[in-house]
Design a protein around this nucleic acid. Sequence first.
DNA 1: CTGAAAGCGCTTACAG
DNA 2: CTGAAAGCGCTTACAG
Lengths: 353, 353
Amino acid sequence: MNDVPDQPDIVGEGGAGAARGVGVRDVARKAGVSLGTVSNVLNNPEKVGERTRTRVERAIRELGFVGSRAAGQLRSRRSGLVGVVVPDVGNPYWAAVLRGVESVLEDRDLALIVGSTHQSPQRQERLLRGLASQGVDGLLVAPIDDDRQWEDFADRFLGVVALESDVGVGAGISLDNVDGAHQAIAHLLELGHRSICFINGPGRVPWCAERRVGVLAGIGEAGLNPDDVLIDVEVSDLTSAEGLRAADDLWQSSRPTAVLCANDLLALGVLLSAQRRGLDVPGDVSLVGYDDVEFVEALRPALTTVHQPSFEVGIVAAEMLLRGSGSRHTRSEHALLSPQLIVRQSSGPPPRG
Amino acid sequence: MNDVPDQPDIVGEGGAGAARGVGVRDVARKAGVSLGTVSNVLNNPEKVGERTRTRVERAIRELGFVGSRAAGQLRSRRSGLVGVVVPDVGNPYWAAVLRGVESVLEDRDLALIVGSTHQSPQRQERLLRGLASQGVDGLLVAPIDDDRQWEDFADRFLGVVALESDVGVGAGISLDNVDGAHQAIAHLLELGHRSICFINGPGRVPWCAERRVGVLAGIGEAGLNPDDVLIDVEVSDLTSAEGLRAADDLWQSSRPTAVLCANDLLALGVLLSAQRRGLDVPGDVSLVGYDDVEFVEALRPALTTVHQPSFEVGIVAAEMLLRGSGSRHTRSEHALLSPQLIVRQSSGPPPRG
DNA sequence: CTGAAAGCGCTTACAG
DNA sequence: CTGAAAGCGCTTACAG
């Protein structure tokens, strides 16, 4: 033991960034062991004798020691950080996915760095760059273009798992967007609609493009020409505010008998616009969403939409990541989840014209 | 220049955690300058001559260099990380707050580590411990008890800003919960309700406790006895699932003429339960929520609720943090935002009994 | 199982 | 403005 006096216990002060925190050094001194032993107690407790371990653990507690991940990361190459890049954390669908991810990772000592792309490739690039410099152990991403910049993360400890779309590397969850959109448009066509507005995100976004393919396919299969049936509207962000604005514009220029939205938030905006304008849904115009977020069942009218299992997506993706399926040199794993149309009250036959 | 051959350009590989990335060393060599100069180009560009700077920047680009925050953090004591601890990222209210925070921090090269407490002190402690070990520069927190464990973060670079409740240290945003709940209960009492169920979170959570105080105060001011009027129901997590369950139980045991919920998600659950049971809102039972999240206006019936400016809360809190208001030795700053009752269609007079 | 030494990749004074 | 040296706080081999 050295002749250094015990410091007063400063509980909870440690960690990088705090003013001169308690370090492993202090713990080692107090417990009368070497630095390596403290590190082992922290990272490989089974390698340390029980008596020594208890002594070190007591010292850690009494000193209020909180290790610095940054320092550890430098040598161990583990940051304890997982990046989550989604289109919009404010969208209940993605918020639910996040909940699922959290529920799996919360007791694994992994922290989540989250960010929203809002369909902007520049934002996505910035976010991924930031995550790279933070040295995340793994990445969960819903890519918004085909740049595949995120594939680099497959080389990291936990690799990369895609929350959407098909991927070339790492693991992923596929939700068949073509099929989901196909179900939705087929429903509207069956009801007799022949003038349908499709409010979608940017065509460069994979899942937006796929949903459009499904819509076009459905129209084609009905023996119709998309040019005669479909009014395409593109919004840059898929929020209720943009849905509201798009709908306000829409009523000015045309009178579709149905509006199909690429997500429920857009549909919410359209519904709000319709209500304010005195349009009856589905009497005057039918409305169909996508996602089936938790509130749409209680809307007036209850929204017809395509269900996607948000919470489950988060859970499955996080589990894949933990399992190591996202690494480049593991056999790649793919979960296929099916979207399913839920018919409620917002869709009905077109008004007799 | 050394005789080291140029490596093939491995774009996007750098950063800790990647397999042997490109380091400042390589950049310095390629640009023919010293390590310190590279660091200056990265952190204090104005201190470097323009010609040298361009040369270094080119080397960075060509090498695909991505710095390691962890290494930098060790010496500079800046992690570029901000912690955000909220009750539930899956709740649209908090999701909107997050959106606000993101919008302010996204171009400041700060990454957000987020976590949900779900009103559990253990979860909060774990999250804060994790954030401390990650060395976050600052913390945004909606505390769920009075432990004040989060006050330690006031010593960090950016300090701590509370997203809820009053705080003893750092900066904070106060939303007058007593007042908000008071407005809500007063509205119901005025309508003539005398049997009101109040579904609230755990009493140990400050903002839950405050809302209850407001409710009790309103009842007292009306010259009534809370014991005669109020049915208290406590849920541990304030989700629609818990609201649904609580309501299902409620109809079994009693027949309140109104239900007041501590947030909109609970109210959504109650509404769903009422609909399934064939109860008319507000004909059979009035319903009032709290938060005014974006979808409640479109519910059937549109929900009467207490508005809180979620997005703005996020923006104001993030700006305070950037301004340094959260540090222990800065003059503490407080924003006072007012909640406001929005009367819609879910509340009306009690049924004639 | 324990302990002294080296080193992770940067930034920071400090001397030129 | 530039460059060599020290050091941030850990973890990791490696010798005992």
